[in-house]
Nucleic acid binder design. Sequence first.
DNA 1: AAATCGGGGTT
DNA 2: AACCCAGATTT
Length: 354
Amino acid sequence: MPKIAPYFSKKLIVWYLQNKRNLPWRNTNNPYHIWLSEIMLQQTRVLQGLPYYLKFIEAYPKVEDLASAPEDEVLKLWQGLGYYSRARNLHATAKRVANEMEGIFPNNYKDLLKLKGVGDYTASAIASISFNQPEAVVDGNVYRVLSRFFGISTPINSTAGQKEFKQLAQELIVKEQPGTFNQAIMEFGARYCVPQNPDCENCIFNDSCVAFQQKKVAQLPVKIKSKPVKQRFFNYLVILSENERTVLQQRNGKGIWHKLYEFPLIETSKEIEVSELQKLPQFQDFSDKINIRNISLYNEEAVVHKLSHQHLNTRFWIIETLDETESSVAISEIESYAVPVLIANFVSEFFENY
DNA sequence: AAATCGGGGTT
DNA sequence: AACCCAGATTT
């Protein structure tokens, strides 16, 4: 290993310098920009995160701008990117840096790690890219490249695996150019050593890659399987008043979409029809407050909104009323609220010609 | 150690 | 349908 390490690392950097994409966060060492990009790219493809990065940089050129923005505004800009705790932690950290640290980010791994939303990967990325510290990153790409090249079958999502791969990456990092090495190994995983059907025949490492030599490329990396997805059944109550207003509620407490807005929701254990809906205590609490003129089902066939760990089988119930509903929102104002994609899709479809 | 947190691309 | 993405945090 000590012999192959310099060979692997240098060759990787040469490949990177010839093949890297020109991405906006690669033209800067500004820790605010690097931090923002790294938070956005957590579990997110570069092409999905890129437009959000550009939006945020434009809306909030400096960390103080982000710090002074209302949380609802930050969540609205984040809408569609998912994992919304990232946006809430992003905002909280911006406030801390702006108000308690004089707008200056920590310049080392240990202190970066204390920031909300910054874990081992992100602290290492910022430390290496912005501050030239030799801290190795281990993301999904790094797991894949290292497990294949070195033929390591320790599950990457086990505690032992995380420790083993982190230590290996730390041994491989080029200390003179840690940021470049880190980005090189990630770029190689993202663009060449891809999850399925990598082009190993033409790979620069195919003479030394253990997985290729042993024909185990398709079996690596090893990952412990997660449990099957949960089926949930959502009934959204879409209130329509005579004066073109509806009701939105902010999600509180635990669970998905914390602090985003949605129509009043009744979750059931299975799909239900209108007679069953009307018998539910949650619905009766609701109908006590407004005078319902008519109820109709918008979609007989449930919309299945697929998340990593759950499928949301969703039906929208259109509830017409004459009342001026309490804490209501004008139809035309819905788009100013941060809502889940599931809601945004319905709104744009249902109110298209409204 | 395991569960949870989104949405979208690829095969 | 299964797998994965420039992971972090909570249980």
